[in-house]
Simulated assay, not measured.
Amino acid sequence: MTSFAVPFFAFRDFPAGINREVEQALVRAAASQHYILGEEVEAFEQELATALGTGMAIGVGNGYDALVVAMKSAGIGPGDEVIVPANTFIATVNAVVQAGAIPVLAEPDPYTCNLTAGAAAAVLTKKTKAIIPVHLYGQACEMADFMQLAQKHNFILIEDFAQAQGASYGGQSVGSFGKINATSFYPTKNLGALGDGGAVVTSDAALAAFARMYRNYGQEQKYHNKIVGINSRLDTLQAAVLRVKLRYLNQLNSERQRLAQVYQNELQGIVGLILPVTAPACTHVYHIFNIRTSQRDKLQTWLAAQGIQTAIHYPVPVHLQEAYAFLGYQPGSFPVAEELAATSLSLPLFPGMTAAEQQQVISSIHTFFKVHG
């Protein structure tokens, strides 16, 4: 594996002492000898629901399962259409298919890269059962229009806020707008575990009860199965870790926002470089700092030569994936999503990143555009 002087992401002890707290939480949880569900999971679920301002949270095995459980709980199944952004991680669309429904893609906004209610409205049909706004890269979607659209057409709103824990719209936390919502605790997420994990959140007691049964073989009482369920439970050890990290989420996000502002200030005015744009009333917690340039591949190669690791989110849009050829889309079907796939580059940004590391990235980008401008 190539070693980079500036990694795209690294796990640092930020804020100082958090690693020790995580280790202590793991030891405590292991000493309890209760490794599946139990008090740690219940405590985390309650704390997460409180932080989000939702009634209930249900821990599951990963973010993909969270999406599937959310859709199953909402009664989405064969024949239903679910609108999703054409620019998203494949898990969002895979989960729709796993639930038995039909994914219908819609163009993202060319500035925020998020799905808008206007784009979703353009592909609504009588078969539309749900829309999944994905709070992409850490920025909240503009939820007021989605709420109005859902009320007008009586469909279900399901938020995918895996990349935006702690973000808000109009002062309200993402993950609290939809009827039932899903998130991931993959280690690199803003609220990350030490392995896979996810959660379903809702204020609907009936949906929460179904989700709790469905994640645990369809049972409320052991060996008494009311529905055909799956096995997708948040590990007790991961819940213990997440309880620690949840207490620091605002501080971790504030550091991400500070680093993002440095990039914004230092990279402004470079001709041919597009920086992230945040929509009104939305906050951005910068899970990803995504820039765009027609010279993306050259820039990535240049930065790698300077010891700087970057990433591309996402190089092949959903409609051009071989797995989704059956949907019948063609090149040119979603020009905005295709442009994003061709020009987007994610810069290093993570809590604990040093000023020297960030300055190396900034200086290298300036030099590239002077040479290749």
Rank of each mutant, 00 (worst) to 15 (best):
G53N: 10
N62V: 06
N62H: 11
D65N: 11
D65M: 11
A66G: 08
V69R: 09
V69S: 04
T92E: 12
V104N: 02
P108K: 07
T112Q: 03
L115H: 04
T116Q: 07
L124Y: 04
H135V: 05
L136M: 05
Q139F: 00
D145Q: 14
D145N: 13
K152G: 01
A162K: 15
Q165C: 15
A167M: 11
Q172K: 15
K179H: 06
P187G: 07
L194F: 13
G195W: 05
D196M: 09
G197H: 04
D204C: 00
A206K: 07
A208K: 06
Y214K: 02
R233Q: 12
T236D: 01
L237Q: 12
V244T: 14
S254V: 04
L259G: 07
V271Q: 13
A279Q: 12
A281S: 04
H284P: 04
I291N: 08
T293V: 00
S294P: 00
A304R: 14
A305F: 02
Y314V: 10
P315R: 09
V316K: 06
A325C: 03
G328F: 04
Y329P: 03
S333G: 08
E338N: 01
A341H: 05
T343R: 08
S344G: 06
L345R: 06
L349H: 09
A356C: 10
Q358H: 05
Q358S: 06
H372Q: 07
